[in-house]
């Protein structure tokens, strides 16, 4: 079988391995399923077979829950393990006052920004999502740019661009990953003392070491200067 696969590949026919890796910045790029390259060939095989089976059931019962669970399960398996960053220290600070009296900031790695305030990665204004997807290598080596989003910014005037993940939900409703509207409501309801203005976002696909050692601490000071006593962080 291996011999046949090799023969087919060299004759121009696509192997399953080539098929599953094509979903990660390849000919079938789909960032919701790019993990099929990260995980094993067996994982992709099992997932696709399970997905087809679940679709068969969906036709009859309309239940999408098992499909979502299968996606999350497969993604979790693909990204299992500690990764490149392990820290033994466990930083911790006690909040000095109740949450209901605290000024809370919001910071996400989702790549949101306000209309008219494009962070202009690499000096490029109006970079499209498609262009960003094609420049993930460059983003990974560059310094991140922090977008300050006034919390009065309307949903219609909120943009998102990030070459590292499927932005469909983030684009349809910012609150699925940048919950500005819900934080405003929580402040109005007295659940939090105050929602710090502005909210912050950047493209998490960036130089991780410079972010941790230099840029992140400077951003934390910026948030403190804006009044933050605690923060909601949403890595994507």
């Amino acid at each position: 079988m291996t011999t046949n696969d090799t023969s087919e590949s060299s004759s121009g026919k696509e192997t399953f391995d080539e098929f599953r890796t094509s979903f990660s910045y390849g000919s079938r790029n789909d960032l919701l399923f790019k993990w099929m390259k990260t995980g094993s060939e067996e994982l992709a095989d099992e997932f696709l077979r399970e997905l087809l089976d679940l679709i068969g059931s969906l036709i009859d019962d309309g239940d999408t829950k098992p499909i979502v669970e299968a996606i999350v399960r497969a993604q979790s398996q693909a990204y299992s393990g500690a990764g490149h960053f392990e820290y033994d220290n466990k930083p911790f600070a006690v909040l000095d006052q109740p949450v209901s009296e605290s000024r809370i900031a919001l910071l996400t790695t989702t790549g949101h920004f306000a209309e008219g305030d494009d962070p202009k990665p690499f000096g490029m204004n109006g970079l499209t999502q498609e262009q960003a997807v094609g420049m993930t290598g460059e983003f990974g080596k560059a310094d991140p740019v922090l977008s300050e989003i006034p919390i009065t910014t309307s949903r219609a005037n909120t943009r998102v661009r990030h070459g590292g993940y499927d932005i469909r939900a983030a684009e349809a409703d910012r609150n699925s990953s940048l919950p500005i509207d819900r934080m405003i409501e929580l402040a109005d309801e007295g659940v939090i003392g105050e929602f710090v203005n502005p909210a912050y976002s950047f493209v998490g696909l960036t130089s991780q070491l410079r972010l941790r050692k230099e840029i992140g601490p400077a951003w934390a000071e910026k948030a403190k200067a804006a009044g933050a006593q605690a923060a909601v962080l949403v890595p994507i």
Binding site: L31, L32, W35, V68, E69, I71, V72, Q75, Y79, S80, G81, A82, G83, F85, E86, Y87, D88, N89, K90, P91, F92, A93, Y165, D166, I167, R168, A169, A170, A172, D173, N175, S176, S177, P179, R182, V234, P235, I236
Partner: peptide, 26 residues
């Protein structure tokens, strides 16, 4: 796994697909 290895102070993990940490749209 990757987040736990970094030992941040407080994490809430949601059983959601990538790109939708708080919810589906709306």
């Amino acid at each position: 796994d990757r987040t736990a290895a970094m030992n941040p102070a407080r994490i809430l993990l949601t059983p959601h697909p990538m790109g939708r940490p708080l919810s589906a749209p709306f």
